[in-house]
Every structure is written in C-alpha cells, then in structure tokens.
Design a protein around this nucleic acid. Structure first.
Length: 428
RNA sequence: GGAGAGGUGGCUGAGUGGUCGAAAGCACCGCACUCGAAAUGCGGCGUAGGUGAGAGCCUACCGUGGGUUCGAAUCCCACCCUCUCCGCCA
C-alpha cells in the first residue's frame, strides 16, 4: 500500500516509479489525487453533519436531565431532519474511501532509485557470475533423465492430478527430500534464520498483506471454505508480524521455512509444459527478514548471499541478476534473481528471487516497530527470498551432474544427507 | 459438531444507553528530590483522518459487519477469534 500523504506532498517519485514499471504515472497520480480530494470533501461533509447531530444529542440529554421535555422534543425533530443528509454524506464517504482503496491496492510498489531502467528481462543487469558451465556432450534434460531412470513419472501424476504435477520415486524422491533438509539446515545453522513450520493455508488478510490479493487471486488455489493455499512461505512468514509492533532491538527478525508451495499458473499455459520447471506444487526453502528502513538494503545484500551460498556449496554454476524496473514483481522495490545453469536449455534459469519490499507490505498488514524511548512507531521493512526452490534445484542438479550413461552424481555437500548414495542410476 | 465464558488503549483491567476516548495499575516520557541511582512525589502519555498561521477545534475507532435509538463500548442480529467442558478425530 502507498503512503497517500507522501504521494500528495511529493508525487514526482510515484510518477517516475510507475512510469518505470510501464504504467502511466502522471495519469495514475492525477486520478489518485482526484479521488483523494473527493474523499476529503466527502469526509468533511460527513463529519460536519455528525458534529451537528452529536451536538444536538448532547443537548437532548441535558434537556431530559432538566425535565424540559418540550426542548428535548424540539431538538429530536431537528436531528430527525438531519437524518437523510447524514446517510447520504456517510454513503458518499464510504464510496470515496472504497474507490481510493481499490485503486491504491492494485498499484505496484515503486522501484528503488538504484534499480536499472528497463522493459523486461532483457534489460536485467548481471552483477556477478559464479562457476563455469560444465562441458557436457549432448546433455539430456531432467525429464528425459528421470523417466529413463524410472524415477520420475509425469504420466502417473497426470492420471491422478492432471498436468503440471510429477511423481518422484526411490532415490530421486530421497534426493528431493535431502535437498530441502540441506537448504534449511544451512539457513538455520549457518545463516542465523529461525526455522518455522507455518500453516500452508491462510486467510484473506495474510494474502492481502503480502500483496497477493486483490490483484493475483487467479494465481492462487482457494479452499472450499475461502482460505488460500500459500504460493510461497513468504506469505505466512511475513504475516508473523501482521498487526504487530516489534521492539526495534528485536530486529532483524529472520525466518525460514521449508514448505510446499501451490500456484495455479493461470495464464502460463504453453510455458514450460515439459518437465518440472513449472509445477502447481513444489517445495521451496524460503527466507524472510523483518528489519528497519535504515538496515533493509544491507539485509537485502546479505540475503542474496545466503541464497548464493547454497548453489556454491552444491557447486552449481549460476549468475546473479539485478532486475530492471519492468521485470520486478508487484511488491518489490528491488530484486535480485539467481539463475542457475541448465545444460539442456543451454542457458541460465531462475532458481531464486530475493526482494526488498520496503514498507509496502508492512503498510498493507500494519506491521510496525518501536524504538525504546521513542514516542511513535514506524513501518518495518520486509524482505523475502528463496533459498532455494527445491524442485528447480533438483532439475539443475540432475542436468549438471549427468554422465553419458544417464547416471547422476551426488555432490559432496549432500553426502551427509544421503549416506551410501554417491550416484543415482546405472550400476552405482 | 454440542454447551458455556469472553474479546476494551503498548500490557493488565474497570465500565451494561447520555461530556466515556474510556477508571485504575503497569510500562513509557518530563520535572522535583539525589553526588548519581533506586524509592517517592508532581505532571504528561492511544491511533487515524479532517480543519486552522497557531493554541486549538472537529470526526472516527472498545474483535468485524449490520441493526435499534435523538444518542451505543454498553441493547439486538450475523460472522470471526480465544478459553473451558463434552463428542469426534491424525
């Protein structure tokens, strides 16, 4: 959500920010200021009417106390005459509030000033690269490898669930589980995140607070009783501070969770239909940081490092991209994507996304912090990042560690999690 | 699912139709006392919005949404949540 007062006082950053996101900033700001003006006029009218009523009501009380029934009756008639106006003014106020709220809640965060301008993913900026893609002759994709091993079954998944699901078996199922354990252990034991086992279903308020609603309802699965399956653990982890006032000395709060994630992928038909790159259900290790405005940029860099560390430990080549204004998500003011090398596609593919949302989500969910000795509160800054997407890591691992016989080597870092297993497939 | 109790400010907790935005305590801030601190005393202390040059004034907010009333924290209805007991259950 946006700070209407800031927008009113200095609209330029909003105009520029929305322009950079491909929207018409000046038109939007003009529309917002118009609605805001109407709202304030409506508020003023309503409040004036209420003040009159309140004043008369008090006098009625006084008149009745003084046993002056004639005066009381006269005043009651006066208030009665006010009623229609009061109702109309109240309705106007509600309508104006709703109109402004509807417009604002659907508008994305504005980019940080150091985010490169650009229209789409082609304008993202590579900030660093780690590792060298392995030389693999005629690399097979993970689906081919998995099916050949008899450990990955898309057809069985389609029979019971439909497209965009997969069944993993035997050592491949075990590998997926080991990857998740490995990731969450690193984030908790080496990077200081607190492990959380959160609900996988949330209510409207949590989905709204993390900017999934109202705009992206069609990307979510909803339960019959109106709850939402989480598309990422960012939603419950960030919602831990929803409506809370956190003492500043307790910040930063760093949470991590290994959960299933559910996405409808509406509008993605035809994209990544083969394999397990884009599924309705996948596991992800998520990191969330809650911090102060002063420290959020540093926390963001730190978080990217925590995600990169996983890929380094797994010895998977990747590059770190700073997303341009046009490619960032709805709630982010700055985002880094990690892209891992996929031999079968001969290119880097997204495996993690780390975003600093500033106070955008905090305003929506009313998450504040209070410094000791200070009078007021401030909105916290929220950050989230994948560390990492387990399914895509499994894909990267299979493709990068395949040999010519279709066997898959297990990297050193996972050996403690897979005792006795150095390869999947073949005779090993 | 059934029966009951309850949701009030940062926290605890009074308030059951008329200056109640709300007693009291705790916490917090200022001042006094003190070499300093503690203790004590005095004062202050919710949030959001509107309006005004400013002091200030006005409006809303007592789980949420409706309703009754001239007037609702207080009465009525629905929903949400918490707790206790019973039932069912991984």
């Amino acid at each position: 959500m946006h700070d209407i007062r800031a927008l009113r006082e200095t609209p330029e950053p909003y105009i520029k920010g929305w322009d950079a996101k491909g929207l018409s900033g000046s038109a939007l700001v003009a529309q917002i200021l118009d609605l805001d003006g109407k709202l304030r006029a409506a508020q003023h009218g309503w409040q004036t009417a209420q003040a009159e009523r309140n004043d008369a009501s008090k006098k009625i009380g006084a008149a009745k106390a003084a046993k002056d029934e004639a005066e009381a009756a006269r005043l009651m008639a006066q208030v009665e005459a006010l009623k229609a106006r009061l109702e109309a003014e109240g309705e106007a106020e509600t309508t104006a509030t709703q109109a402004l709220q509807d417009l604002l809640s659907g508008l994305p965060n504005i980019p940080a000033t150091d985010v490169p301008a650009g229209a789409d993913e082609h304008d993202n900026v590579e900030v660093r690269r780690w590792g060298t893609p392995f030389a693999i002759a005629n690399p097979k994709d993970h689906a081919t490898l998995g099916e050949a091993l008899g450990l990955m079954d898309f057809e069985a998944a389609a029979r019971m669930s439909g497209s965009r699901f997969v069944v993993l078996k035997g050592p491949l199922a075990r590998l997926e589980r080991a990857l998740g354990q490995f990731m969450i252990d690193m984030q908790t034991q080496e990077h200081g995140y607190t492990e959380v086992s959160p609900p996988l279903m949330v209510n409207d308020a949590a989905a709204y607070g993390t900017d999934k609603l109202p705009k992206f309802a069609d990307q979510l699965f909803q339960t019959t009783d109106g709850r939402w399956l989480i598309p990422t653990a960012e939603v419950p982890l960030t919602s831990l501070v929803m409506g809370q006032i956190v003492a500043e000395e307790e910040l930063p709060l760093r949470y991590t969770a290994l959960t299933a994630c559910f996405r409808s992928e509406a509008g993605a038909s035809g994209r990544d239909t083969r394999g397990m790159i884009r599924q309705h259900q996948f596991y992800k290790c998520e990191m969330v940081s809650i911090t102060t405005p002063e420290r959020s940029d540093a926390e963001h860099e730190r978080m990217v490092g925590c995600a990169e560390a996983i890929l380094k430990r797994l010895e998977l080549p990747f590059r770190t991209m700073l997303l341009c204004t046009g490619d960032m998500g709805f709630g982010a003011r700055k985002t880094y994507d990690l892209e891992v090398w996929l031999p079968s596609e001969d290119r880097y593919r997204e495996i993690s996304s780390c975003s600093n949302c500033g106070d955008f989500q905090a305003r929506r969910m009313d998450a504040r912090t209070k410094a000791a000795g200070e009078k007021g509160t401030r909105f916290v800054h929220t950050l989230n990042g994948s560390g990492l997407a387990v399914g895509r890591t499994l894909v990267a691992l299979m493709e990068n560690y395949q040999d010519e016989d279709g066997r898959i080597a297990i990297p050193q870092a996972l050996h403690p999690y897979l005792p006795g297993l150095t390869h999947i497939g073949g005779k090993g």
